[in-house]
Design a protein around this nucleic acid. Sequence first.
DNA 1: CGAATGATTGACCCCCTTCAAAAGCGGTGG
DNA 2: CCACCGCTTTTGAAGGGGGTCAATCATTCG
Lengths: 230, 230
Amino acid sequence: MLASHPIEIGHIVVPARRAPGQAGSGDLAERMRSASIRKLESKEHVFCEGDPRIHVFQVEEGVIAIYKTLSDGRRRIIDFAYPGDLIGLGAGKEHILSAQATCRGKVRCHSAASLEALAESDAGLAIKLYRSVCQELEATRDLLVAVGQRGAVERLASFLLALRRKDAKDPDTVRLAMRRSDIADLLGLTIETVSRTLSKLRAMRVIDVEQGGTTVTLRDIPRLTELSNA
Amino acid sequence: MLASHPIEIGHIVVPARRAPGQAGSGDLAERMRSASIRKLESKEHVFCEGDPRIHVFQVEEGVIAIYKTLSDGRRRIIDFAYPGDLIGLGAGKEHILSAQATCRGKVRCHSAASLEALAESDAGLAIKLYRSVCQELEATRDLLVAVGQRGAVERLASFLLALRRKDAKDPDTVRLAMRRSDIADLLGLTIETVSRTLSKLRAMRVIDVEQGGTTVTLRDIPRLTELSNA
DNA sequence: CGAATGATTGACCCCCTTCAAAAGCGGTGG
DNA sequence: CCACCGCTTTTGAAGGGGGTCAATCATTCG
C-alpha cells in the first residue's frame, strides 16, 4: 500500500532520537541497528532523482544535502540531514530527490521494502512515522519562512539558529560541515552573499568565524534571534 | 500520545479526496460528514497562533491562508488551503500557525480530541494521516523550491501552476481567490512586484488577467512551465 | 452613489547578483 | 616535511531586479 502512493519523504527523524523516553514495541532505531554501513566521500551521492528506491539510509556521520535539481541545472537544497536522520524514505518506486554528502561520512543502509512492510502491520510504527514526518514538515516550514525573508542577514541568522538546534553539542558553537555553495543553495543566495553576510555578522560582533570558516561561534544569540526575525 | 508531541501539521489533505478508490474502515472523509459548519467572512480568522487547539477544520468553500507571524509583524504564508483540505491538525495543545480566510467561505468543524483518539487505536487511520502529511510535506517542498527561486517571474509561474494543480476545474483557467498581498506573502515578494510580474507575463502572452485580476487564463502552459524552472 | 479597499503603474534607490581577482586551506607527491 | 596544485573562500567593483514611496485607477459594498 505504501508503495502505491507517489510521495517521497526525503528524510525523517527517528523519533527515539528527539524523544529518548519513547522506546516501545515498534522502535525504529532498534530495527536499524543490524544494517550495513556505507562510507561516503565528500560530494558523493547517496542516491539521485530517478534511482530505484531500494534502501532507506540513516546518517551515521557527516551531513547529507537533500536537494532537487531544477531544469536549468541549479540545485535547490531542501534540507541537511544530520546523524540520526533517516533519508530515502518514501512511497514511490523511485527517488524524487537527490542526496549528496557535503563532507565525508557514513550511512547505515536498510531495506526500504522491509521497513515499509513493517509499517503496514505495526500501528505503533505507523504513528512514529507520522510524527517523524510532522517533524520534518515543521523543519521545512521553518526553512520556508527563512528563505522567504527579504534580507540575507535574516536568512543566515535563521540558518545558524536552526543548525544550533540540530547540531546541539556546544550551544554557542556551530560547525558548518558544508560548503558555502551548499548554504547558498539552501537559502536561495549566492556563495558570495553568504560569505559577505557572515563577514558582516562578524563585524557586528554577533558571530565569530574560525578555522577556515567551518566553525562559527555564536557571540550574541539574542541579537541573532532578533536578526532572524523568526 | 499524540497530544504530547509539540508539532503542528497545519493542514493536511483527506486522502480519499486525492485517491478516491481508497475508502476503507478508517475513512477520514466519512467521519467528517456530521460536523457543524462555520461561515467565514473575508479576512476572518479560523484560528490564531496560541489559540487552544480544540477543532480540526475541513475547508468547504473558499480559500484559507495558513501563516506564521514574524516578530516584526509581517506575515509569512505557508500554504493556501482549498476545499477538501484539513486545517488545524496537529499535536500541541495550542495552534502554532494562524489560519485566515482570503475570501468568504465555510469550514466544517470537528473535535480535535476525538479525531486524535481515533488515530491512536486505528492503524489504518494512522497510515492515512501519515500519507496525508507526506502530501503536505511535498507541497511545502515545492513551495520552498519556488520561493527559493531568484526571479519574481519564476515564483509567479510556479505559483500559477501549483494553483492549477489544486484548483483543477478548467485546466487553462485559474481563479485567484486571494488578494495580491496574500500571494506576495506566500512568495516572499511585494504586492507591487506581484502585480507588475503578472502584467509582464500578460505582455509576454503567457497569461491573461481578467475580471478585476481574479481570473487568470493560462495561454501558454509549456512556456509557463519553462519560466517556472520547476 | 460614494467611500473604502485593492490593483496597477511610475520613479528612484538599495541590496543582491554577477564578474573578477586574490588569498587561504587541504591534499598529494616528491 | 615541504612545495605545489586545486578547491574553496573572501573581497572588490559594477550592474540589475525588486523594494519603497507615491499617485492613479478599478472594484466592491454599504
